[in-house]
Amino acid sequence: MRIEIRGHVGVGRPASGVALVARDNFSARYDLDRIRGVFSRPAHALHGQSYVGRVLVLHTAKGGVATSWMLREMRSRDMAPAALLLNTANPIMAQGAAFADLALMDRFDVDIVDAIRTGDRVSVDPTAGLVVVERD
């Protein structure tokens, strides 16, 4: 099964990977153990799970400004997600993704957390504002 989802034009280079999805929010500073590459905030829906190389699908950008530096730093160690899809991003996520050249999109024609399931294969083209989901 192949699903095409339209969103607002995002930032970063095209990317693809296996989806990791939760109806929760995202901040690199608040939620992640960036050394081990896992969600470390106990209250987070993805606590303990690895995000490295995954297309992360979450609801809203949260937290402070540090994510702007952190995405590039994570990428430099090959410990970053492949792409980030949010129902609602914020300036910090956009600035961090632009600095890291990491694919980021938001404002889709569907609720992105409902539309994508963990394990789906997802391709993200931020310039075209297009997400393609493939599911067995």
Binding site: V65, A66, S68, W69, N90, P91, I92, Q95, A98, F99
Partner: peptide, 8 residues
């Protein structure tokens, strides 16, 4: 002002 992260 918007939130302007470090590099921004």
């Amino acid at each position: 002002s918007n939130f302007e992260g470090g590099p921004a």
